[in-house]
């Protein structure tokens, strides 16, 4: 799995802990990496992803539907699941301010042994680490 993930586009380094099933992925300097592709690659290597968290710097945007999105690249953004932290950052939408957040992009539904991840990942903001 480590080699398989290491071959994915934008991956600088992969660390796997067999003890607790933790996989740490460091993106390359430009940060151009596709979490959905990594999820698929992980499933393809024969293991089940229980959850995926990211730390990223980006901008809070307002979607046409009225919901919030977190933009990490000009052509890459994740819809934000509404919670207290997303509400508190709503005032930043449409401003040039960047924030560094830690959030959950995927969590396996409870009770299911194996679940294919959704193609459209949604971000649940867990922590706002920095506002710039």
């Amino acid at each position: 799995m480590k080699q398989h993930l290491g071959r994915q586009s934008g991956v600088q380094n992969v660390e796997v802990s067999l003890l607790d099933g933790k996989v740490d992925i460091t993106p390359k300097e430009d940060g151009r990496i596709d979490p959905a592709q990594l999820l698929k690659a992980t499933y393809d290597s024969g293991v089940t992803v229980a959850e995926m968290d990211i730390t990223a710097r980006g901008k809070i945007m307002k979607e046409a539907s009225g919901g919030l999105a977190f933009q990490v690249a000009p052509n890459q953004s994740f819809a934000c699941m509404p919670n207290d932290l997303s509400k508190s950052s709503e005032s930043l939408s449409g401003t040039p301010a960047t924030v560094t957040v830690r959030g959950q992009l995927f969590k396996k539904p409870a009770g299911k042994k194996k679940a294919q991840p959704a193609s459209q990942l949604q971000l649940t903001i867990l922590q706002i680490q920095k506002r710039e």
Binding site: M1, V16, L18, D20, G21, K22, V23, D24, I25, T26, P27, D30, G31, R32, I33, P35, L38, L39, T42, G46, V47, T48, V49, A50, E51, M52, D53, I54, T55, A56, R57, G58, K59, Q71, V72, A73, P74, P96, A97, T98, T100, E132
Partner: peptide, 30 residues
């Protein structure tokens, strides 16, 4: 002029945006 400055700021902040770290917890690893 103000619009141009705002656009430059907006583009600069998007250019700085990036994913810094990804962490997964997986099951079934041998």
């Amino acid at each position: 002029m103000n619009k141009l400055a705002y656009l430059v700021l907006l583009l600069a902040s998007v250019a700085q945006a990036q994913i810094k770290h990804i962490e997964m917890r997986v099951e079934g690893m041998t």
